[in-house]
Computed example of a mutant assay.
Amino acid sequence: MTRVLVLGGTGWLSSRIAASWVARGARVTCLARGGRPAPAGAALVVADRSHPDAYRDVAGEDWDEVVDVSSDPRAVAASVAALGDRVAHGTYVSSLSVYADHDQVGADETAALAEPLRPGEEYDYAKAKSAAELALTALAPRTAIVRPGLIVGPGDPTDRFGYWPARFAAAGEGPVLVPDAAGLSAQVIDVDDLADFIVAAGARAFDGVVNAIGPSSPLGEMLDLVRTVAGHTGDVRAADADWLARHGVLHWAGPRSLPLWLPADVPGFATRDGSAYRAAGGRIRPLVETVERTLADERERGIARARAAGLERSDELALLEAMSAGH
Results as ranks from 00 to 15, higher is better:
His247Met: 10
Ala144Asn: 07
Leu113Thr: 11
Ser70Ala: 07
Pro175Leu: 04
Asn211Phe: 02
Asn211Met: 05
Leu194Ser: 08
Arg160Asn: 00
Ala166Cys: 10
Leu260Ile: 11
Leu244Ser: 01
Ser50Gln: 13
Asp156Tyr: 06
Ala140Pro: 10
His251Phe: 15
Arg147Pro: 02
Phe197Ile: 06
Glu109Cys: 00
Thr290His: 15
Val4Leu: 06
Pro175Thr: 03
Pro141Phe: 02
His327Phe: 06
Tyr125Gln: 03
Val229Phe: 07
Asp72Ile: 07
Ile303Arg: 09
Phe168Ala: 14
Asp101Ala: 08
Val45Arg: 15
Lys127Cys: 05
Leu13Gln: 03
Phe197Met: 05
Gly84Thr: 00
Arg283Ser: 08
Ala18Gln: 03
Asp240Ala: 00
Gly302Gln: 09
Leu113Ala: 14
Arg313Val: 12
Pro267Thr: 07
Glu312Asn: 14
Ala309Arg: 02
Val76Ala: 07
Thr290Arg: 14
Ala253Phe: 04
Arg313Ala: 08
Arg305Glu: 02
Gly183Glu: 06
Asn211Leu: 04
Trp243His: 00
Pro154Tyr: 09
Asp235Trp: 09
Gly214Ile: 07
Gly202Ile: 11
Cys30Asp: 01
Arg27Ile: 07
Val191Ile: 03
Ala241Tyr: 12
Thr137Pro: 01
Leu13Met: 09
Ala42Gln: 10
Ala126Thr: 04
Asp196Asn: 08
Gly8Ser: 08
Met1Arg: 15
Trp21Ile: 01
Gly11Arg: 03
Ala19Asn: 10
Leu184Phe: 02
Arg272Trp: 15
Gly84His: 01
Val178Lys: 00
Ala264His: 15
Val45Pro: 06
Leu96Asp: 14
Glu115Met: 10
Asp180Leu: 10
Ala279Trp: 11
Leu5Tyr: 10
Arg3Ala: 15
Val191Phe: 07
Leu44Glu: 00
Glu298Arg: 13
Gly281Glu: 07
Thr110Arg: 09
Ile17Pro: 03
Arg56Trp: 01
Leu5His: 09
Arg204Val: 05
Ser130Arg: 07
Gly231Ala: 15
Glu173Leu: 09
Leu258Ser: 04
Ala306Trp: 09
Ala78Tyr: 05
Ala304Ser: 15
Arg33Cys: 04
Arg256Ser: 08
Arg49Cys: 08
Pro179Arg: 11
Ile213Met: 14
Asp53Thr: 14
Val266Ile: 11
Val199Phe: 14
Val178Asn: 01
Pro116Asp: 02
Val291Asp: 04
Gln104Arg: 14
Tyr277Asp: 05
Gly11Trp: 00
Gly231Cys: 14
Pro116Gly: 05
Leu311His: 05
Arg160Met: 02
Pro165Leu: 08
Ala19Glu: 09
Ala81Lys: 04
Glu65Leu: 15
Ala132Asn: 03
Glu316Gly: 02
Ser70Leu: 06
Ala245Asn: 09
Gly268Tyr: 07
Thr110Ile: 06
Val6Arg: 06
Tyr123Asp: 00
Arg299Leu: 04
Thr290Met: 15
Ala43Trp: 11
Trp243Gln: 00
His51Trp: 01
Pro73Cys: 14
Arg3Pro: 05
Pro154Thr: 03
Gly208Ala: 13
Glu122Trp: 01
Gly282Arg: 02
Gly282Asp: 04
Ser79Lys: 07
Pro255His: 12
Val176Ala: 13
Ala32Trp: 09
Gly281Ala: 11
Gly183Gln: 10
Pro52Met: 14
Ala140Thr: 12
